[in-house]
């Protein structure tokens, strides 16, 4: 039996999770979570840890020289550095709207990068 203690980051409550499993994750048993998102987080964290990534990208606006962006869902951790390095090299033209897609399906992860604010000038 394998065991691991985790702290859930799905919300600010910070539930202390306890995970137990055998060879594969098929029999994964999670305790300590106060909501279903805790179990989902632990499962994902053990199989393929991923994070929401936020950053800023250079823009053509004089007033807002950098615009905030984020991934629309958790990006697998091994891809985060590559995404950030790519974002810092980009320059985008305004106007942009909140939710507009900047990068689609980054490295076939099916994760998109979207703008998190609307900038018109």
């Amino acid at each position: 039996m394998k065991k691991r203690d985790l702290i859930c980051i799905a919300c600010p409550s910070g539930c202390r999770l306890h995970a137990e499993w055998r060879g594969t994750f098929e029999d994964l048993n999670i305790t300590g979570n106060r909501c279903p998102r805790g179990a989902a987080y632990a499962g994902r964290e053990l199989r393929n840890p991923a994070r929401i990534v936020t950053a800023v990208v250079r823009s053509s606006s004089a007033e807002h020289p950098w615009l905030p962006v984020r991934t629309d869902r958790e990006l697998p951790k091994p891809l985060i550095d590559a995404l950030l390095n790519r974002l810092y090299r980009m320059r985008v033209e305004i106007p942009v709207s909140r939710g507009d897609v900047l990068i689609e399906n980054f490295e076939n992860s099916s994760v998109n990068v979207i703008f998190s604010s609307t900038t018109t000038r």
Binding site: C11, P12, I52, T54, A55, V56, P68, R70, R98, S116, S117
Partner: peptide, 18 residues
């Protein structure tokens, strides 16, 4: 610009600007 806002108030995870 990080996420973690709005889980209670909007029932979804948002960044500060959102």
């Amino acid at each position: 610009i990080h996420s973690g806002f709005g889980l209670r108030y909007f029932k979804e995870e948002l960044t500060g600007p959102e």
